[in-house]
Design a protein around this nucleic acid. Structure first.
Length: 555
RNA sequence: GCGGCUGUAGUUUAGUGGUAAAACUCCGCUCUUCCAAAGCGGUAUCGACAGUUCGAUUCUGUCCAGCCGCACCA
């Protein structure tokens, strides 16, 4: 990341806090990594993003209906979707090579030799961190006694007498020749350290069976050297909770990691109780939760976030590729309609070999964030995988009756899924500008402005009496404010000089300010000054014209 | 999760082993006839917790949070 883009992010974070868009969660307690709060302006902007999407995606189309499903669902939903199985495996990191392994796929074995023992070699191995006396002690009695603890002096003398020793460990990844591999490594180990005696056939264990004090002596498959592997750690992407007062295994439930499954699970309900016909879509906006390993980049990747997802169900024989293309286009057009510049948007086609096995095609709409080009909106062709899975796991047919062919079909699905928070950050980043402005005397000053689309702006109009202490001005301004606020998010501001109030609104992204001045009350026509955020141009406007402007621009 | 760097008003920064300063913002008052005017007043347990010390915001450790890189992101 360049210094400039880093500064831009810092400026955005600072502005977001200063103006009440976004605060760090639980800040007075030191903050909580990966969680954020939306302040008074932030909550309006976020609501507008949701509302725009909902109106355009659901209310203004006749083939899509809405849904709001519960955040906590039956745990079997996540077994069916594959979220439980895919993410409960403990993982092992190699701190040196940065490789990450599944613990049950990483195998290791002790190098055990019967025969003469050279005390010097043992000391040398110990000094080089290949093995410790305590770990040696545990491996003396074979087969393994897992309850054995630290060896005593007598025990150690006993091993020498027995002349059966463990000299270290070898490791290998799971494959068809894991055992052979370990055996060969053990032989190489024996040669390397000049050990005499007979090498026992290696006995592989997987890494979940490694004891805490053995782990430091098991070499990393990446480097061949011990000391860099972490203990196996569970990376549960889903947040777990318990349903009901009693806390036991049967009460475990999860906070949803995506809103999509709610729509698949209610597919049959909607088909049976409403009059939808293929092709049709189910849309949902709601919070999702993922225990991301590294939340980063402000609200871009957080652990609690809000999704806007739509599942578009199509006939299995329909031209899914054409449908996929249509949605790809729709989503790009929508992003432009809320003010994201085309120059910041691009497409990323997931390569075939990286696709999830059930996906036929996935294309991401990327956005040029200050910290790089990142995924904004994923449009996936998910085939009929999810409905088939739920049909299988629930035993309830997930079918649609096709009147044309008089047959039951399981529809396929095209899924555009986007994060509200990611759009939030995108419009903030794209709209943020610091401009040089010349005042009357020609002095250059800086102006910070947030160029938000009027549809998204938290405040549509600020109503400003030119002066605070002139009753006629404030009375007229309050009357206008009262009338506007019935339909629009507006602000009344009489604090400080007029220029300061304009700039304050610029930072909040307010597209228009109207100023009630002396011309308003002294001249006929009841006109106000309308000041535009982006051009800073002023013109006179009547109340009727103002409402017409808002009707046109805010929808 | 690993490594490096960082943490002082709302924001951006100064500063010191002897309990802290500035600018802007914000709030209140006075004033103000169109682009951050002026004056006065107000706003900090110096990220948290331990330790060293007569005394720690300053030194040490742990934790938390942030930034950068790597890894991860079905």
């Amino acid at each position: 990341m360049s210094a400039d883009s880093s500064n831009l992010m810092e400026a955005l974070v600072s502005l977001a806090k200063r103006r009440g868009f976004i605060y760090q969660s639980s800040e007075i307690y030191g903050g909580l990594n990966g969680f954020f709060d939306y302040g008074p302006l932030g909550v309006e902007l976020k609501r507008n993003i949701r509302d725009c999407w909902w109106r355009d995606m659901v209310q203004r189309r006749d083939d899509i209906v809405g849904l709001e499903t519960s955040i906590i669902m039956h745990p079997k939903v996540w077994e069916a979707s594959g979220h439980v199985a895919g993410f409960t495996d403990p993982l092992v990191d190699c701190k040196v090579s940065k490789q990450r392994y599944r613990a049950d796929q990483l195998f290791w074995a002790a190098v055990i030799i019967d025969g003469e023992t050279d005390r010097q070699i043992v000391d040398s191995l110990t000094a080089k961190g290949r093995i410790s006396p305590e770990v040696m002690a545990r491996w003396l009695h074979l087969p393994r006694e897992r309850t054995e603890t630290v060896g005593t002096k007598e025990a150690r003398e006993n091993w020498v007498a027995n002349r059966t020793m463990v000299y270290g460990f070898v490791s290998a990844l799971e494959s068809e020749r894991t055992h052979t591999d370990l055996q060969e490594q053990a032989e190489a180990f024996k040669r390397k350290w000049g050990l005499q005696g007979t090498l026992r056939t290696v006995q592989p264990y997987d890494f979940t069976e490694a004891k805490e004090d053995e782990i430091p002596y098991i070499p990393s498959p990446a480097t061949g050297l011990p000391g860099s592997l972490t203990p196996p750690r569970a990376f549960n992407m889903m947040f777990e909770t318990n349903v009901g007062a009693m806390r036991d295994a049967s009460s475990v439930a999860y906070l949803r990691p995506e809103t999509a499954q709610g729509m698949f699970v209610d597919f049959k309900n909607v088909v049976d109780t409403t009059r939808v016909k293929l092709p049709f879509g189910l849309a949902q906006i709601g919070k999702s939760f993922r225990n991301e390993i590294t939340p980063r980049n402000f609200i871009f990747r957080s652990r609690e976030f809000e999704q806007m997802e739509m599942e578009y169900f199509i006939h299995p024989d329909a031209d899914w590729l054409a449908c996929h293309e249509e949605w790809l286009q729709w989503c790009q057009d929508w992003l432009k309609s809320i003010g994201l510049p085309a120059s910041h948007l691009s497409l990323h086609e997931h390569p075939k070999e990286k696709l999830a096995f059930y996906s036929r095609r996935t294309v991401d709409i990327m956005f040029k964030y200050p910290f790089g080009v990142q995924e904004l909106w994923g449009i996936a062709a998910r085939s009929d995988y999810d409905l088939q899975q739920h049909q299988k796991c629930s035993g309830v047919p997930q079918v649609y009756f096709d009147e044309a062919t008089k047959s039951k079909v399981v529809p396929h699905v095209i899924e555009p899924a986007v994060g509200v928070d990611r759009i939030f950050l995108a419009v903030l980043a794209a709209g943020y500008a610091v401009e040089d402005v010349k005042d009357e005397k020609g002095n250059v000053e800086q102006r910070t402005v947030l160029r938000l689309s009027p549809r998204l702006a938290p405040v549509k109009v600020a109503v400003l009496p030119l002066l605070k202490n002139k009753e006629q001005l404030t009375a007229r301004a309050r009357a206008l404010h009262a009338k506007l606020r019935r339909r629009y998010a507006v602000q009344y501001d009489d604090g400080g000089a007029i220029g300061k109030r304009y700039r304050r609104q610029d930072e909040a992204g307010t597209p228009w300010c109207v100023t009630i001045d002396f011309e308003t009350i002294e001249q006929p026509g009841d006109t106000f000054t309308l000041r535009e955020r982006d051009s800073m141009q002023q013109r006179r406007i009547t109340e009727a014209e103002l409402f017409a402007l808002l009707e046109e621009q805010v929808y």
